[in-house]
């Protein structure tokens, strides 16, 4: 395993020489002792399993026996099979749409709470926003099915009011339903980081901008928004990353066109009994999430630099 030694060398190079010569401060030593149990836990239950599925993705499975010859065949199969690629592409697209919708809906709320709610009532608002999020996820997703369904709450009330004549069918068992449901599920995750970023903005900067002749709109675009970008970027990542791995919402409200890569990973592991293929798809999903996130962070790098 030459790769392992390369990794080890890189890690060791990260250690400053005086640290190895026993010049660790007393406090640093205690820190090291204290961090050992949680670190060992994360190493054993996170790093080792992740390394294992990486290894598995280069193996193959024939019914119950695992063939441990190193091969790229899972990856060639994954890239060659239009189904896998379509699922991966759709997952990224749906996750992207969910992210855009969630963050766009969340921003005005965060802005409202930060700028237009009295300081003493801000935590009440945040509390109100977080409460729905702490109720059973499965039941919430199921209730969206009840709301969006053909004879659902939304359709019956719209017909009742007379706005539409027949039930809308484009809101359940497709990607739209997945987007609506997930935009609801991740709302607090998007609101909180944006709110924190907005709270940090020095209000005198806005006054200065107005005094110097900018209008409210240009002040928002040229002062508030750039300063809020770190929060927006955090919100985007917090919504985008877990969305890729969701299989509950696609299964319950997505219909056949709303299924995502996580559903396929689940099928490979639990139904088809093909752990190596499942591992390959998991690795591919993780890599694409990481790649998209890194590109996104890179595109926003000028907003993320702190004040000099």
């Amino acid at each position: 395993m030459p790769g392992f030694f390369v990794l080890l060398r890189i890690v060791l190079q990260g250690i400053k020489p005086d640290m190895l010569r026993g010049r660790l401060t007393e406090s640093g030593k205690r820190g090291l002792v204290l961090i050992s149990p949680p670190f060992a836990y994360a190493l054993l239950l996170l790093a080792v399993p992740l390394a294992t599925i990486l290894l598995f993705s280069f193996w193959t499975q024939d019914y119950l026996t695992i063939d441990t010859t190193f091969t790229f065949s899972n990856y060639t199969e994954a890239f060659g099979d239009p189904l896998y690629m379509a699922l991966l592409r759709r997952s990224l697209l749906i996750a992207g749409a969910v992210t855009v919708v969630t963050v766009l809906l969340a921003f005005p709320i965060a802005y409202f709470v930060s700028f237009h709610v009295q300081p003493s009532r801000k935590s009440l608002w945040l509390f109100l926003i977080t409460i729905p999020f702490w109720t059973s996820y499965l039941i919430r997703v199921f209730l969206w099915k009840v709301i969006l369904g053909y004879n659902g709450v939304l359709n019956s009330s719209l017909i009742g009011v007379g706005l539409i004549d027949e039930p809308l069918s484009f809101i359940l068992y497709n990607a739209n339903a997945v987007v609506i449901t997930l935009a609801h599920a991740f709302a607090p995750f998007a609101i909180l980081p944006i709110f924190v970023a907005l709270e940090k903005i020095d209000r005198s900067l806005l006054e200065a901008s107005l005094d110097l002749g900018e209008t409210r709109v240009t002040t928002f675009l040229r002062v508030t928004l750039p300063l809020a970008m770190p929060g927006v970027v955090a919100a985007v990542l917090i919504v985008f990353i877990p969305t890729i791995g969701d299989y509950v919402t696609p299964r319950l409200v997505g219909g056949p066109d709303g299924l995502m890569i996580a559903n396929m990973i689940q099928t490979q592991f639990l139904k088809l009994n093909n752990a190596p293929m499942g591992a390959t798809l998991a690795i591919l999903a993780m890599l694409s999430v990481t790649a998209v996130s890194l590109v996104f962070i890179w595109l926003n790098r000028r907003w993320l630099r702190g004040p000099k």
């Binding site: 399993p49 992740l50 990542l237 890729i244 791995g245 993780m286 999430v289 996130s293």
Partner: peptide, 11 residues
């Protein structure tokens, strides 16, 4: 920052 399904399948 890890999709839960990754944690689940790797474990």
């Amino acid at each position: 920052v890890l999709p839960e399904i990754i944690v689940a399948v790797s474990l």
